[in-house]
């Protein structure tokens, strides 16, 4: 029997009202993440990946807001909580890792103070215990001489080390769910793999569920168990990483995989998807992808695509999904 999911997102819609009308950067997405599972969320810039993460943790910038749908965390609904209750959940039950480690640490506070403040906010420990925990948290993310580095300021660390500190900060109160929003985008390629491996190991060990937001399919292939492909605020395809990469069903997912370089010999020319993703305010009717889709036909231009659920592990939202012979 599969364990109950840590996170359940049900029909989540984020709206931004503006003079030009209401746009929906996140439109009716649903997924579950199981304990210890890493769900990769991919898509182009503006596909709503980060916006979905911010909506879950309740950090949408006004006027963006959750218009409908539900977010459940460990069996309780969190999208409608009062601010103060949500604050207690942030950091304690949901950790968040940001994109740029150079800007996500407060430059004027010692990292030890930033850690102990977070720990003491959420856990009933003394100052001394919090300090011990902070040392342990830094050791866990692989910072050498952790006890001495507590008194260092963020600028005394390299970019990769800072991202380790950020991860330690996000995980120091042992949340059961972590949102990693492009955690490696701002890092050196050589450091990226280390950070991904670290995130993966920590979450496996603790059974932490992870939502890994990125536009880097390589990172997804390496780290994620399942992948959700987002397009124009909607979920185009969701499934196990291997099957989405090797046998994508949604033409957009297929296009993404075709645009991914591989190291295999006899490299063909990369395919590209014609056109660009529409802005959230100008999403076409029917399937949002139809103007760029090689398989588009009449129904695609009129009605939103049905969700195909024939695979228990995955689903795709398409009128004419690609068929793959087994």
């Amino acid at each position: 029997m599969t364990p109950p999911p840590v996170l359940s997102v049900r029909n989540l819609v984020v709206e931004i009202p503006s003079r030009a009308g209401i746009s929906r950067p996140v439109n009716n997405i649903s997924y579950d993440i199981a304990p210890g599972e890493i769900l990769g969320v991919v898509g182009e810039s503006g596909a709503g990946k980060s916006m979905a993460g911010n909506a879950i943790i309740g950090l949408l910038d006004r006027p963006a807001h959750i218009a409908s749908g539900e977010v459940w965390l460990n069996g309780s609904r969190i999208d409608n909580l009062p601010l103060e209750d949500l604050r207690r959940i942030r950091g304690r039950q949901i950790g968040m890792v940001f994109q740029d480690p150079l800007t996500s640490l407060n430059p004027l506070l010692r990292i030890g103070d930033q850690l102990t403040e977070t720990i003491r906010e959420h856990l009933p420990v003394t100052a001394a215990q919090a300090r011990e925990r902070a040392v342990a948290a830094l050791e866990e993310v692989g910072i050498p001489a952790a006890a001495e580095r507590l008194d260092s300021y963020p600028h005394e660390f390299s970019g990769g080390m800072r991202q380790r500190v950020v991860i330690a900060l996000a995980l120091c109160a042992e949340p059961s769910f972590v949102i990693a929003d492009e955690p490696t985008t701002a890092l050196d390629v050589s450091v990226q793999a280390q950070i991904i491996a670290l995130l993966r190991r920590l979450c496996r060990d603790r059974g932490t569920a992870v939502m890994l937001v990125t536009h880097d399919m390589g990172v997804i292939a390496e780290a994620a168990d399942r992948v959700a492909v987002m397009y124009a605020g909607r979920l185009a395809e969701l499934g196990p990483v291997r099957s989405v990469i090797n046998a994508p069903r949604h033409p957009y997912a297929d296009g993404l995989m075709g645009a991914m370089p591989s190291l295999s010999i006899g490299q063909r020319r990369l395919r590209q998807i014609p056109g660009a993703m529409p802005r959230p305010s100008k999403i076409p009717p029917g399937c949002a992808f139809h103007p760029r889709c090689p398989r588009a036909a009449d129904p695609c231009r009129v009605d939103p695509p049905p969700t195909i659920l024939d695979d228990p592990q995955g689903r795709a939202a398409c009128w004419f999904p690609l068929e793959h012979s087994a």
């Binding site: 943790i57 950090l59 604050r87 207690r88 959940i89 942030r90 950091g91 304690r92 949901i94 950790g95 968040m96 940001f98 996500s104 640490l105 407060n106 403040e117 977070t118 906010e121 959420h122 950020v166 900060l169 996000a170 109160a173």
Partner: peptide, 8 residues
Amino acid sequence: RFARARGL
């Protein structure tokens, strides 16, 4: 933002 996300 990160401080907010940590529930401070």
